[in-house]
Design a protein around this nucleic acid. Structure first.
Ligand SMILES: [Mn+2]
Ligand SMILES: [Mn+2]
Ligand SMILES: [Zn+2]
Ligand SMILES: [Zn+2]
Lengths: 139, 139
DNA sequence: TCCTTTATGCGAAAGATTTGCAAATACAAA
DNA sequence: TTTGTATTTGCAAATCTTTCGCATAAAGGA
């Protein structure tokens, strides 16, 4: 995902391509893990002169537009990552705040079964699995 | 899970069985969905004279003891349910705050694969799947 | 360039959770 | 049953996270 592609994502969502919005999106995409507002503030305040409220508003608009995914991990604060498709699988340490993203494992069958069993939902868009444990560093 | 069994859970965790702690646990267990602090406050303030801080502290101690599971659902506040085993599977509406618990779908194979792929974790304890979509009422 | 809508900065407010401290309570030992 | 000590609670204040109001600035189509 290069800068031009990200610009197009924003445009296609009907949002305006501002310096700050692009910078927020770029920072989320560059991060190796789902990134918090606190971390984004650190990253962006150095280069840009960007207000905290602007970060929150852009994360929100990009999330509503379906460009970003929001994850909480039961940390009491939000984390964001690029909404790439339908799945986001992570292992989360219950002691420290380590998160490890795991790719390449599908649970599509299980999701289909869940939708079949559901009474309130006809179909779904995305899903996330959080597997909890204690990481090697914390054992 | 009756009151005596819950008392034993608390004792086995090395915690003291106080009226408030038992009331909090009982209220969580009785709820049909993962319950929020706000809801617990409403429920418990009527019968008991219990402070908000006491609710938070008991939810925390019961969670740390492994008796309660905490779930956020990206709502910006915590929800709690009884920690029954290893899995908690929900479908969550992205518009309203509807949550539907789905039971009877296993993803143990996928979890095993995730642990195999992990570099930071040797084993794990619990997991949750949140499937996101828009519920029939919100479509 | 002009116009209208959308985005931003700033400060304040709201919502969620945690903390310090003194008083009350649980419960094991005597 | 009484006593002693560690845990729990109430209360108020603090902290952390997120949202909002409003005036100004910027985006982007006409
Ligand atoms: Mn975090
Ligand atoms: Mn909720
Ligand atoms: Zn850890
Ligand atoms: Zn809904």
């Amino acid at each position: 995902m290069n800068k031009e592609e990200l610009k197009n994502l924003i445009k296609e969502a009907g949002l305006r391509v501002t310096i700050h919005r692009l910078a927020v999106l770029l920072a989320v995409v560059k991060a190796k893990q789902p990134v918090t507002v606190y971390e984004l503030t650190e990253i962006l305040r150095k280069k840009e002169n960007i207000d905290q409220a602007t970060i929150y508003r852009n994360l929100s608009s990009l999330h509503i537009a379906g460009i970003l995914r929001r994850l909480d991990f039961n940390h009491g604060h939000a984390h964001y990552e690029l909404e790439t498709g339908t799945a986001s699988h992570q292992i989360v340490c219950g002691k420290c705040e380590t998160i490890e993203k795991i790719e390449g494992v599908s649970i599509d069958n299980a999701i289909q079964k869940m939708i079949q069993k559901s009474k309130k939902f006809k179909n779904t868009t995305t899903h996330s699995i959080e597997v909890y444990g204690v990481c090697k560093a914390c054992v």
